[in-house]
């Protein structure tokens, strides 16, 4: 409890300094932002130069349920909690690649991944990369309002486009996106290829203090997440209340390498009024 409280307090105290959109710096000039980036980042200044910037408004983000951006929302608190936990689990062990997957479809995995990425990016110490590995139903482009036809990982796999050209900055400080770019018909083969391994290694080692969030489909939908999980440090499972079935949850747990599972998140679940104070004291142990 105390740990979480401290984390929350710290997050709150850091808020004014870290605020991206508030305190009058809107509209922010691109130049300012780009010039500001290297100051914080220790390495890879080139990457920032090469990164395409697609500015998204907080309204659009809110419309796409990326509410973690608004730190006053209830959801933002929950994501901060989740972020703190992930830090707790990973930092000591030097882990930085996290796969977000679920059990079925339409469980809000991408939303959770995006919000988590945003939330981590809001932490002063961390930068975040959100990689969309869902080649069946790519959603990062949609969530962050990237223009259609925006190049993505498919270009990397199919045309060997260098990664540097594929990064997109959504206009949120310390957050970089790597969209899928479009569906791939033979996603399982590609994800199991050497190139994929090289990609993950490359991403993991380019910035040591960067968290990489991989958004993948549900485990019951296709083999993709299982293939990918081989290269991951940790797996975060997402289940949606009133959507995920008991069978798919049980079956999903059978397939996933349990050692890598960091935790389970329940999406779209609100505690009834008056009981909220109780919930986390039990699970913090």
């Amino acid at each position: 409890m105390s740990e979480i409280k401290r984390a929350l307090e710290r997050a709150k105290s850091e808020k004014p300094r870290n605020d991206v959109f508030s305190d009058g710096n809107r509209p922010v000039s691109l130049g300012n932002r780009f010039s500001a980036e290297p100051e914080n980042g220790r390495a890879g200044d080139i990457a920032f130069v090469e990164t395409r910037v697609v500015k998204t408004s907080p309204e659009d983000l809110a419309r796409n349920r990326i509410t973690a951006i608004d730190e006053n929302s209830g959801a933002a608190d929950q994501f901060k909690l989740l972020r703190t936990r992930i830090f707790h689990w990973t930092r000591s062990r030097g882990l930085n690649s996290i796969q977000v997957t679920g059990f079925g479809a339409a469980e809000g995995k991408s939303t959770v991944a995006a919000n988590l990425a945003v939330s981590i990016a809001q932490d002063t110490r961390q930068t975040t990369l959100l990689v969309d590995l869902d080649f069946r139903r790519p959603s990062v482009e949609r969530l962050f309002g990237l223009p259609s036809g925006c190049p993505g990982l498919n270009a990397y796999f199919l045309d060997d486009t260098p990664l540097e050209r594929l990064f997109v900055s959504p206009g949120i400080k310390k957050l970089t996106l790597l969209p899928a770019g479009g569906p791939l018909s033979n996603a399982a083969d590609i994800l199991g290829s050497k190139k994929m391994e090289q990609l993950v290694t490359e991403l993991k080692h380019r910035y040591r203090d960067r968290y990489i969030i991989f958004d993948t489909p549900g485990v019951s939908a296709c083999p993709d997440p299982l293939i990918v999980s081989e290269y991951m440090d940790g797996i975060l499972l997402v289940a949606r209340a009133g959507c995920t079935t008991r069978e798919s949850a049980a079956a999903g747990m059978e397939r996933i390498p349990k050692g890598k599972v960091l935790g389970v998140v329940m999406n779209e679940y609100s505690l009834p009024e008056g009981t909220a104070s109780y919930r986390y004291s039990g699970s913090s142990a």
């Binding site: 419309r63 959801a75 994501f79 909690l81 989740l82 809000g108 935790g263 389970v264 329940m266």
Partner: peptide, 29 residues
């Protein structure tokens, strides 16, 4: 109903305690 509705059930099935619950994020729409 075969669906999971609360974190306790989910934790039981998965064999882990649920680390976070995300409330429904209501958009204007």
């Amino acid at each position: 109903d075969a669906r999971i509705h609360d974190p306790e059930t989910l934790g039981q099935i998965v064999g882990l305690s649920v680390c976070a619950t995300i409330p429904r994020m209501m958009t204007a729409a």
